[in-house]
Nucleic acid binder design. Structure first.
Lengths: 359, 359
DNA sequence: TTGTACGCGTTATCAT
DNA sequence: ATGATAACGCGTACAA
């Protein structure tokens, strides 16, 4: 056996660097965390030694001593929706700039999963949490508050929410888009939405549609409402179902762009003209929407901005220290993007739909 | 001042639970980590006390004592591409089942970013790493190996790669899809790809196209090759540019489905028939591809399976212990999905393209 | 079965 | 400016 290191298996520790640089372990720590407090010559020596043996402070020990983990968590339904992927991407970027690591949970619209994931995150010592939506298990937010962990609810912004939230008013947004169709002259309108159960955003959207319809004395007929998974395929089958009913809608409002893309594709496949025979609206303004033929009328949501604001708010909480009460967050303003998929209904259709009122 | 707890700010620790349950701190730990080693009655008492004060083992302390962090890292280019989002989602699920937390890095096709992210992950004590692609900074993999951290390269599978990888042979896959077009009778073929710089997968794909063309004595003419960001818009502008050249291609091969979707939409917008006037192929089989009109011929990649396999491999490394050399990983087989966007070229077009050979 | 005591790797306080 | 040393919160030999 030669003299060379028998098993360098174990990663180097601060003491090893200290020995190599012939300084104390405290100096090693300082050289990394407050370089200005150590003499340049020594600092160089330490840094060189560290680089030579590939040492870097181990986060676990560091977190313990510092009492800061520099970890925050993001809790979203799924990465399969471009909307949440964009939010997470923006948050990650914002946090990375401050040396904070983002922990991700995809709960797949399952409340228990979301709860468990949050507990795991708390155990990991997350210093803050961003959570999509507020329709969660009743014990979720209390479990976070009990630990005094700051949090935000994203993608939603009820005026009277008990939680700090960064997002927009889903209900108001759907009032806007519904009025757009009403102003064009539509009176019989179909609606395709995601499951409302356990999804506060979708419920709010549906309420918004009802609000706007009620203003004109109209309502949603049961046969004109389809509720199911947000997928292009569900959009397709739903529009087919809705168009088979009487009175036949001249427009369809979709709960998001995936559904609307499906509705648009299927309507065209059925030989219908869009918007001539049927107007279609979406929500979110995902990448594909403006590429469709005709391009989709939808509400644009700046999801990267939501991510940035959520991160900014949480960073304020962390850096502002405990005393300062978090500043209030203004809602984002979704903007109606009028594109080719909506227009006035054909004359005959309007007449036949004149008695669309339902309640 | 009443007698109630002055400042319960600090989260409870194991000692607090121990005191409440009137046991030692060791028993608290055991009650959570090896329940069978503690008497049922005591166990209940401990668990109850813990639940009452909302205690759970703090990961940092636990990691330090155990010398295991139960964290692994995933390094991908971006979440904006459905392909990587699916991989990450699958990995996260697989790891979560084993109580392992997934740390995510999106390096945005920036090698330095990838390197820095990996260093940060190593500092966090990741026990394993999954990394998309192998075209990284030359010091990336050595820095991982130096720490004896097991890793896999995903989304790629060169037969002679020095790294364990889970993916498919990009070159072979593009040979297949190119031959598909050649067999249909196409001889003048345009190519639209992502940037090859710093992206081994794309370079391999381009090589695959060249391989298949060369088999028939053909090549890619410079004016028929567009390289740029993978986006629907770049697909659109590229197909327009390519179709303005002579000889005019009868088919276009795209480096991924986003580009192909753009090419398809633009070709139709230009009034061309697809596949009548132009055949188009994609790659990945993203969700929108089969929805297009005509649906896109593409190669199907099971990205969730890639994620699962990568996770499975890394779990084997972790649980198998140090001695066992990791088992070899077979490549996945992408499958050609023939849909409506490809067909034989029109007779006239074939004739005019007879001299497509270039070298 | 339960308790004692030490170690995990780093940071921070306090001398020097 | 630098060094010694006590936390930080938990797991686990080892002893009882």
């Amino acid at each position: 056996m030669s003299e060379r290191e028998p098993k360098p298996k174990r990663p180097p520790r601060a003491v090893d660097v200290a020995a190599a640089a012939e300084v104390s372990i405290a100096t090693v720590s300082r050289a990394f965390n407050s370089p200005e407090k150590v003499a340049p010559a020594i600092r160089e020596r330490v840094l060189a030694a560290a680089k030579a043996m590939g040492w870097m402070p181990h986060a676990a020990g560091s977190a313990l001593a510092r009492r800061r983990t520099s970890i925050v968590g993001a809790v979203i339904p799924t990465l399969d929706n471009e909307v949440f992927a964009a939010q997470v991407g923006a948050m990650q970027t914002a946090f990375a700039e401050r040396g904070i690591t983002l922990l991700l949970s995809c709960f797949n619209y399952n409340r228990d999963q979301a709860f468990d994931d949050v507990q795991a995150m708390l155990a990991r010592g997350v210093e803050a949490l961003a959570i999509v939506g507020e329709a969660h298990r009743p014990d979720l937010f209390p479990s976070i508050q009990a630990r005094h962990v700051p949090y935000v609810v994203t993608y939603s912004h009820r005026p009277d929410s008990p939680h700090p939230c960064v997002g927009f008013d889903n209900r108001q947004a759907f009032r806007t888009i519904t009025r757009h169709l009403l102003d064009l002259g539509h009176e019989v309108i179909g609606v395709i939405v995601q499951p409302t159960a356990g999804n506060d955003r979708v419920a709010a959207r549906l309420d918004g549609v009802r609000d706007a319809l009620a203003e004109r004395g109209l309502g949603i007929r049961p046969q004109h409402l389809c509720e199911g998974e947000w997928s292009i395929d569900f959009g397709r089958q739903s529009v087919r179902a809705i168009l088979a009913t009487e009175p036949r809608p001249t427009a369809v409002i979709c709960g998001n762009d995936y559904l609307a893309v499906g509705a648009l594709l299927e309507a065209r496949a059925m030989g219908l003209a869009v918007p001539g025979d049927l107007s279609i609206t979406g929500f979110d303004d995902i990448a594909i929407s403006r590429q469709m033929d005709p391009p989709l009328t939808t509400m644009h949501i700046d999801n990267r901005e939501i991510g940035r604001r959520a991160a900014g708010y949480l960073l304020d909480c962390l850096e502002g220290g405990t005393p300062s009460p978090p500043p209030p967050l203004p809602p984002l303003e979704p903007t109606l993007i009028r594109r080719g998929s909506t227009a006035a209904p054909a004359a005959g259709d309007v007449a036949s739909g004149g008695i669309a009122g339902q309640g």
